[in-house]
């Protein structure tokens, strides 16, 4: 366990810009250690962006939330979003920052026809293959059996519908907190539910089964009814537009041979 990085004192606020899934974010932070850790972890996702969503980090006086539209607390770190802005407070290390970023993204994406999914995404022939499943299903295995540089994430995928096309994005959210990923995207070829087996076999899922597969693997933290309705709209669209399959696979690269092109 690494030492906490929080600096309780307020110093000079410095912007840290990043973009994940084409969602521009600007962290306003004064903690140099946390800034350094973030710079490493999100190296492939940094860069100046326009119209970024501004987040006040560990600056309790920065945003006076009269009434939060969305609030979430994770192990003492608090996310609050209101019409006055967004704040992350009590962020003691990069793990907490990473968690709040995922939670914020999951909420912001519903207005952008997107969502986060427990899934590995691998590029092949210019398309994004999305392999979903809970811990132990084989996401990391699939990633490790794929060519170097082709894996957009081995843990949490980001899918968005843009101009009528579903795209799978690289994310910085990798298993075991590894800093990896590339800030790129590709049209989604399909969603594959991972089941480890002795033989490779792919079976198309019917729409309701796709939703059954997706629901437990979607990252979503809002208990607000309207946000959940929007999420269900998005997932209904996924079910109708993205082909999805059950993939029984052996722990070797031959599973690629049974995947639809």
């Amino acid at each position: 366990m690494r030492a906490p990085l929080a600096n309780p004192g307020r110093g000079h606020q410095q912007p840290f810009d990043l973009s994940i899934g084409s969602v521009p974010l600007r962290l306003q932070m004064s903690d140099s250690q946390l800034l350094g850790a973030a710079s490493v972890r999100y190296a492939a996702f940094t860069g100046a962006t326009s119209r970024a969503i501004s987040i006040a980090l560990n600056d309790f006086s920065a945003v006076d939330h009269a009434q939060a539209e969305f609030a979430y607390e994770f192990e003492g770190a608090k996310l609050r979003a209101s019409s006055r802005g967004i704040s992350f407070d009590g962020v003691k290390n990069e793990y907490a920052l990473d968690s709040l970023l995922r939670i914020l993204l999951s909420w912001k994406l519903v207005a952008r026809q997107g969502f986060l999914l427990h899934a590995a995404t691998v590029l092949r022939d210019g398309k994004a293959y999305v392999f979903t499943g809970r811990s132990g299903a084989g996401k990391s295995t699939v990633a490790s059996l794929s060519p170097a540089g082709s894996v957009l994430t081995d843990e949490i995928s980001l899918l968005r519908r843009e101009n009528g096309v579903w795209r799978g994005y690289g994310t910085p959210f990798w298993g075991e907190f590894r800093a990896a990923g590339s800030n790129t995207s590709a049209p989604v070829a399909g969603i594959f539910r991972l089941v480890q087996a002795a033989e490779n076999q792919v079976t198309r899922l019917r729409p309701l089964d796709v939703l059954r597969v997706l629901m437990p693997n979607v990252l979503f933290f809002s208990a607000e009814a309207e946000a959940n309705r929007r999420l269900l709209d998005i997932l209904s669209q996924v079910v109708a537009e993205i082909p999805a399959y059950n993939l029984a696979f052996r722990k070797d690269p031959t599973f690629w041979e049974v995947l639809p092109a």
Binding site: L208, L211, R212, A225, D233, S236
Partner: peptide, 23 residues
Amino acid sequence: NPALAWREIDEETVIISPNDSVM
């Protein structure tokens, strides 16, 4: 229940209860 989200998929009604994400 006004707190729920629901949609019709594959001719069946799917309802999500946001508090526990149960389908």
